[in-house]
């Protein structure tokens, strides 16, 4: 069977306001408005959604899997990662304290 001549739109949905839109899949549609309408039933009918985005597939510029080695970490650079910082521990302990004191109140 020949493929539809409609464009492919990539679909992103957001479960809660303020949270990031997460990629869920794609739909075929003649235009963005129709893509939103079709995506709603495709991806919104079984999971909670507050917002959908559709993006024409050809609007996305992607890296090539041939270049996957560019993501390699050749040497130990864990000092650049945030969990190494004392600040992270301090924030965690403040949050824990607040949660605790709220529990007592």
């Amino acid at each position: 069977m020949s493929d539809t001549q409609w464009q492919i739109f990539e679909v992103f949905h957001q479960q809660v306001r303020g949270e990031p839109h997460v990629y869920v899949g794609s739909v075929h549609a003649p235009d963005p408005e129709a893509a939103l309408i079709l995506a709603k039933e495709q991806y919104g009918r079984r999971q909670a959604s507050v917002s959908l985005w559709v993006v024409p597939e050809d609007a996305i510029t992607a890296t090539s899997y041939e270049d996957v080695d560019m993501f390699d970490h050749g040497t130990d650079k864990s000092y650049r990662e945030s969990f190494g910082y004392e600040t992270t521990k301090r924030i965690k302990s403040i949050v824990a304290d607040r949660t605790e004191s709220r529990g007592e109140a």
Binding site: T4, W6, V27, H28, A29, I37, L38, K40, E41, Q42, R45
Partner: peptide
């Protein structure tokens, strides 16, 4: 006619 229409129409 297309999968997307099928799903939407069936769901409605």
């Amino acid at each position: 006619p297309i999968l997307e229409a099928d799903i939407a129409f069936s769901s409605m």
